[in-house]
Amino acid sequence: MGLGQVIARRLALMVLVLLGVTLLTFIISHAIPGDPARLLAGQRASDEVVAQIRRNYGLDQPLPVQYVRYMSGLLKGDLGRSIRTGRPVAEDLARFFPATLELVGAAMLLAVLIGVPLGVASAARNNSWVDHVSRSVSVAGVSMPLFWLGIVALAFFYGKLGWLPGSGRLSPFGLAPPTVTGLYLIDAALARDWVTWRDALVHLLLPASCLAFVHVGVVARQVRGSLLEVLHQDYIRTAQAYGVPPRRVLYRYALRNALVPTLTVVGLALGDLLAGAVVTETVFAWPGMGSYVVDSITSLDFPAIMGFTVVVAVGYSVINLLVDVITLRLDPRIRAMG
């Protein structure tokens, strides 16, 4: 099977899954206790107003009709209107998205930059102290309540030492750099505003590190595992027998192949990072989509909650498809197995 065909098949499967995703969110948002029209109208609205809203939002139509409407809205990028802010949910999410992207991106970068070398070191020196450290970090990472880690880190680095700022993306009187990407680090660098850049960096450091900590171990264990597997293959022994320097064998011959399965793990970790961002943003008062959805939960703002859920699920599916495609390109063996 050619690469094109494999990708076409994955795409078709993804469309099916995405249909299911929207159906599931539709079902959940219609299973909420109480009358959505009453929720939209507010507690003191008269029955006529509620009936009017019900007609306006099409809530008096049969469910299949409502689903089709919901779907056609989704395709046009219409996620409904937030009860809490009164603005379209899509607009709200777009406004908060860059902050979340910056946080998740930084955390991912940190997890890979620390996790991969740690994994290489613990495979190269299997069962040495490095290996034990990476194993402990991994167990601690998967067992760590992220919300608590954030709080304890805040208490220590902000409360006790005073080294890092406590919350938000910038200092209270800091001005956001002119918006190009919405990522403060990049925008500030583009504007050559190094004071703001530094401010954004120190604000990002603690939340991103906490979010990354949970994933460093996962990445390291995966790198170690696939590297060990590769290191026991014949071509490595051949290379060693030919006297290729060990460093070169490790980095040029083995690591390249070991990184392919790691990519899949990193892709899957993105979903957890997004979910982790919900928690991290709450703890660090980071103005992203996560804080937005938590505030929406507190005020039972269902259009906002469901909009966030759909967007995240769709984004997550697309990223995993991309990872699949990259993996297929990198490793022809997987392609052969279909």
Binding site: V17, G20, P33, G271, F302, I305
Partner: peptide
């Protein structure tokens, strides 16, 4: 597959919010 297409916490949050 559909259930797994959501990050676990995100789907669980939406569900729990709907369940009350």
């Amino acid at each position: 597959d559909v259930i797994l297409a959501f990050p676990a916490l995100v789907l669980a949050m939406a569900l729990a919010a709907a369940l009350g």
